[in-house]
Simulated assay, not measured.
Amino acid sequence: MERQRLDKWLWHARVVKARSSAAALVESGHVRINGGRQTSPGHAIKIGDVVTIALDRGVRVLKVIGFADRRGDAASVTGLYADLGLPPK
């Protein structure tokens, strides 16, 4: 798999609890891909893209390193992204 829908990837990466929540997050303008605001949940992302997500608890910056065919448990997301956020002080 070379590309995946943005909303599907956010759900598989367990950023949100439901795929509909992922779509709403994107449509409301809270997601950027490589620095550009994205409002289409169906936007295709690829390995190497940097996804910036504004959430209630703060901002997450994730580099896409893989895709999944289905949503797994919390341990399975380690192969989907690298967290580029600043380490806690």
Rank of each mutant, 00 (worst) to 15 (best):
G29A: 06
V16G: 05
E2V: 06
V59P: 05
A74D: 13
L10V: 05
G35R: 09
H43P: 01
G42T: 02
N34E: 08
T39K: 14
R5E: 03
S76G: 09
A18D: 10
I53M: 13
R32D: 07
K63D: 08
W11I: 02
V77P: 05
I65Y: 07
H30Y: 11
D69G: 13
T78N: 12
I45L: 08
K17Y: 15
I53Y: 14
D69V: 08
D73W: 14
R57N: 06
R57G: 00
R14I: 04
R3C: 01
W9Q: 01
Q38S: 04
G42Y: 00
A74T: 12
K8Y: 03
R60F: 00
V16R: 09
S28Q: 14
V51T: 02
G58E: 09
T78C: 11
N34Q: 06
A18V: 04
Y81Q: 09
H43N: 03
K8N: 02
R5A: 04
G36W: 07
L55S: 07
G35S: 11
R37L: 10
I45S: 00
I47H: 10
R19A: 12
L6N: 00
H12A: 02
E2I: 07
L25K: 09
G42H: 00
V64A: 07
V77M: 11
T39C: 08
D73R: 15
V16L: 14
V15M: 07
G58V: 05
A22T: 06
D56V: 07
A23T: 04
G79P: 08
E27Q: 15
L25S: 08
A74E: 14
A23K: 10
R37I: 06
K63E: 15
V31E: 03
S28D: 13
A13E: 04
R70L: 09
R60H: 03
R71V: 10
K46V: 03
V61L: 02
K46L: 02
K63H: 03
R70E: 09
D69S: 12
L62P: 03
H30V: 00
G72C: 08
D73Q: 15
E2W: 12
G42A: 12
A18I: 02
G48H: 14
P41E: 05
A54P: 08
V61S: 02
